[in-house]
Amino acid sequence: MTQTLVLQSDFGISDGAVSAMHGVAHSVEPGLSIFDLTHDIPPFNIWEGSYRLWQTMTYWKEGTVFVSVIDPGVGSTRRSIGVKTGSGHFVITPDNGTLTHIQRTEGILEVREIDEKVNRLPKSGESYTFHGRDIYAYTGARLAAGVISFETVGPLIEPETLVQLQVKEPTIGYEAVEGIIDILDIRFGNLWTNIPRDFFKKLEIGYGDTLKVTISHNGREVYHNSMTFGRSFADTHKGEPLVYVNSLDNLGVAINQGSFAKAYDIRTGSNWEIHFNK
């Protein structure tokens, strides 16, 4: 049965790269449903690619095939892989950390290293710089269209051998919680943390409470202020900061009608830590 193919990359849409990936997939099966997750991942930013997969994957039906290509090591000895996730989805991607968030949250049931002698766009064997088109889009489309089964993607490898990015897990203590800035709500500049809403419930922090918020980068404090825990942006005046619960049920930090990330030059990853104190 034909499934859906969802594409993600850091290619942008200012040239023909994404169109070429669509063309390859369409040539495999003209009736295949092909969608774009995003192609605006910052160049080479594997962390953000990993997060965006996790952010969206479980909203798609089981069996959906994702192709994720953020691949600064293209043409090197890094592996090309296909995985089946605990949520019943498939991902075709380089083995470079792109699956970090999925492996932590949904789990990975099975991993196969792509057999590039079989699963490679015909007549592309001399190209080593566009595996997104020649290997990933081609293999992903063949899998989604039912031309190949997951078992014929390539030989099995152990999930434990996959490359993982460093992640600092959120923690809860006496009247305080701590985590990292996982990602930015790009268009609006809000900070999305990896701290679940339930941590505030355990500390009996309610809407309207005032919190002390500290942000550190590589152990150096870059922001410290008090702000309100609000149900929505309407709970503060324009230009004021607030803590809120984002669409993934984690804690976020924002400036009402402003960009927190730009105002304080905040970025993402395990070396960007955030603390909330009652």
Rank of each mutant, 00 (worst) to 15 (best):
A144K: 09
I195A: 05
I148G: 03
G82Q: 05
D71H: 08
S80A: 07
K123M: 15
T98F: 01
G140Y: 09
Y128E: 11
L156N: 12
P155L: 10
A176E: 01
N119A: 01
R78T: 15
T193K: 09
W192I: 13
R187S: 14
T93C: 06
A176L: 00
I135Q: 05
L156G: 11
G73L: 05
G97A: 07
L191D: 05
P196F: 14
G125E: 02
G189K: 12
G173P: 01
I81N: 06
P122G: 11
I183N: 07
S68W: 04
I108L: 08
E175V: 04
E175H: 13
L143T: 02
S80V: 02
N194M: 04
G86W: 03
V83Y: 03
I183V: 09
T105F: 05
G173Q: 01
I114M: 06
E151F: 06
L162S: 03
E178G: 00
V177I: 06
S87V: 13
E113L: 09
V74H: 14
H89L: 08
Y136C: 01
Y174M: 02
V74I: 13
A137I: 04
G179R: 02
L156E: 14
A145Q: 02
Q166H: 05
D95Q: 03
T193G: 10
G97K: 08
K123N: 15
I157Y: 09
G179S: 03
F199E: 14
F130N: 00
K84L: 14
I135E: 06
I135F: 07
D182Q: 15
F150S: 04
D71E: 02
I195L: 05
H89N: 08
A145P: 01
F130D: 00
Y174F: 01
R197Q: 15
Y174Q: 00
D185K: 12
R120G: 09
R104F: 06
V153M: 08
T77S: 13
S87H: 15
G140E: 08
F199I: 13
G132D: 01
F188D: 09
K123S: 15
G73D: 11
R142I: 00
L143K: 04
V167D: 00
L121T: 08
K168A: 13
L191C: 07
V177D: 06
E106F: 07
R120L: 06
V167L: 03
K117S: 13
E106Q: 05
I114W: 07
D134G: 06
N194P: 10
V177S: 05
E126P: 11
T129Q: 00
V118A: 12
V83S: 05
P159R: 01
G146C: 08
E151D: 13
F150I: 03
G179D: 07
H101T: 05
Q166W: 01
F90I: 12
A141N: 08
D71N: 12
A176D: 00
T193P: 13
P122V: 11
R79D: 05
P170R: 10
I92F: 12
E116S: 15
E126L: 15
I186L: 15
V167I: 09
E151R: 14
T93P: 13
E113C: 10
P94H: 11
E110K: 12
D134T: 04
I81D: 07
P159T: 02
T100L: 10
L162I: 01
V69L: 02
T98E: 10
